[in-house]
Design a protein around this nucleic acid. Structure first.
Lengths: 335, 335
DNA sequence: ATGAAAGCGCTAACAG
DNA sequence: CTGTTAGCGCTTTCAT
């Protein structure tokens, strides 16, 4: 039952066991071709017999890099982050990099994640998803020489991959207008949200622009904003849908919020899309399941691109800012 | 523009700058009370002026531990994993542990994740979610003295946290029977799935037991199994729902599969729950959004408990196997 | 082609 | 209370 305290074999044990020097073992480990094949064999055998596994911590210290990247994001408050993470994971894994997660669920944690010295140094670079970076933070990161790439939100001094949220908002509204809607509501995040998310406001700008361009004027009461989340969106939508001048369609700044709108419609016994049409934004997994029409943004790809940029930055390049332009309306059953 | 190659300050720089020894700096860093407050001040100032951040890699090497735990799981194929991860993240963060992710999306990756020597040593323990461990793997892990805890699936020699899936299957079917259903179908995973998931079969056992107990006999054609995923489940459900002896209710072994059943029902213009009732398992986030009746298992809590057990194991304890028993049917709109 | 030895940055005896 | 120093396990000159 007792797992005897059998110390892990070290490179020295292997060297001794194989009757060679540690340098030789290291060379074998790193596939450095100079080693005679006979030696190589001896070392390989010793490794197998001892069940030796190199210590990546020691390796990191010696090399000055860790082969891991950190990902800072609100993983569980924002479903789209998980989707992006898929892309990140795929690319990072492909290049032999490990993934260290820093979940940020509250504004306090947010500050902590960047200040957390103890943790930050064990990654070779940082990927920041959906969270804006303050100038001080960028200063600090630059001072430390830690490569950073942002996804879904930009900063003038940081390479990032974003989409054109304003255009996305336009697309959504153009879709509704094309279907004959003239009184269109909007449900989104409040501009002063604690994390500083900005995409909702950009999408609202697109919403307004599309209305204006179509000769429509946004009715003030039909635009509502609140905390992110489907429950909050539900409450907001309830208000809007109870008005006398109830909109015939609602654009929600995210699929999560669109779900809230759908819930509100059901609560009021309104049929979707006959009584009220709904379009969301993102195309998270649940959107397909719910049959939600939405503006699709390439979530997985944004993660993949972000990871690639970061890897390039770690390798010494100075990656550019990128704008992904694959926004499309995915029409399903809610419009 | 050039981020001048300003080398990171080390503990020695701080010591020099403050006119003390590295040992003293180390003591200040680790809050060891013996240091005179005057010294402490000097050190603190030096740290601030130099913008010094301790290297956790060096610390890990010296200490022999990394303050991080690894999580191995099929993160993106199984939505419930993400939910469990919330619990893990919360507890790990609470105890100052970092999280290293090892995503396993294919059976090949699966083998790799456990063999990946280079990565495994940088965590103090391993949490394995929803993936069975082979005896050899457990041997290897024990030999290396790496603490492991499993979630959602057990192994005789590994502490784990599971639920009673058989009982869960019973609950689902009892719920349907209580609503008058007598011809009940089942959609689940095939027993020989590539990852070796087992919960579906256990739930099926519960399904059968409940039928038997109610004096009903399972009609062979109404029980179907295939690859995991909603698309596959949809196809399977389509077959079942097209039969002459179409069931009046279907128990899906997971919410993901229940979604497929719902899609099939819609494709055939069957009303839910009038023409066919559907109950799932897990209570993932989408279940609420879809109004899916389901057997709720405490996903977040399983993650939290697993993390706590692992932390205890790392601290030297020998944690037990645990069975969470908070299974309940959450009735929504599909039954 | 191989080995000896000097780090990488930190912790923890041990001395004083 | 503070400093000296020997590791932690690996990589990498520099010799040979």
């Amino acid at each position: 039952m007792e797992a005897g305290p059998r110390r892990q074999a070290t490179i020295r044990d292997v060297a001794r066991h194989a009757g060679v020097s540690v340098a030789t073992v290291s060379r074998v480990l790193n596939d450095i071709p100079v080693v005679r094949s006979e030696m190589r064999e001896r070392v390989r055998d010793a490794i197998a017999e001892l069940g030796y596994r190199p210590s990546s911590t020691a390796r990191s210290l010696s090399l000055g890099r860790s082969q891991a990247i950190g990902v800072v994001a609100p993983f569980f408050t924002t479903p789209s982050v998980v989707e992006r993470l898929r892309g990140v994971s795929q690319r990072a894994g492909h290049h032999g990099y490990g993934l260290m997660l820093f979940d940020v669920e509250t504004p306090e944690q947010r500050a902590g994640a960047f200040r957390d010295f103890a943790r930050l140094d064990r990654v070779d670079g940082l990927l920041v998803i959906s969270l804006p970076l303050l100038d001080d933070e960028v200063d600090a990161l630059e001072r430390d020489g830690l490569p950073v790439v942002m996804i879904d939100i930009g900063h003038p001094r940081v390479p990032h991959v974003v989409i054109d949220d304003v255009r996305g908002g336009e697309l959504a509204v153009e879709h509704l207008i094309a279907r004959g809607h003239r009184r269109i509501g909007f449900v989104g995040d409040r501009p002063d949200n604690p994390f500083g998310f900005t995409s909702s406001e950009h999408r609202r700008r697109g919403f307004r622009r599309a209305l204006r361009r179509a000769g429509l004027r946004p009715a003030p009461g039909l635009e509502v904003r609140g905390r992110h989340g489907h429950a909050e969106a539900r409450a907001l939508a309830l208000d809007v849908l109870r008005r006398d001048d109830r909109p015939t369609a609602i654009f929600a700044a995210s699929d999560t919020q669109a779900v809230g709108v759908l819930e509100a419609a059901r609560a009021l016994d309104l049929r979707v899309p006959q009584d009220v049409a709904v379009i969301g934004f993102d195309d998270i997994e649940a959107a397909e399941l719910l049959g939600l029409t939405t503006v699709r943004q390439p979530l997985r790809e944004s993660g993949a691109r972000g990871a690639d940029l970061l890897l390039a930055a770690i390798a010494g390049a100075a990656p550019p800012a990128e704008e992904l332009d694959a926004l499309t309306v995915v029409e399903r059953r809610t419009t």
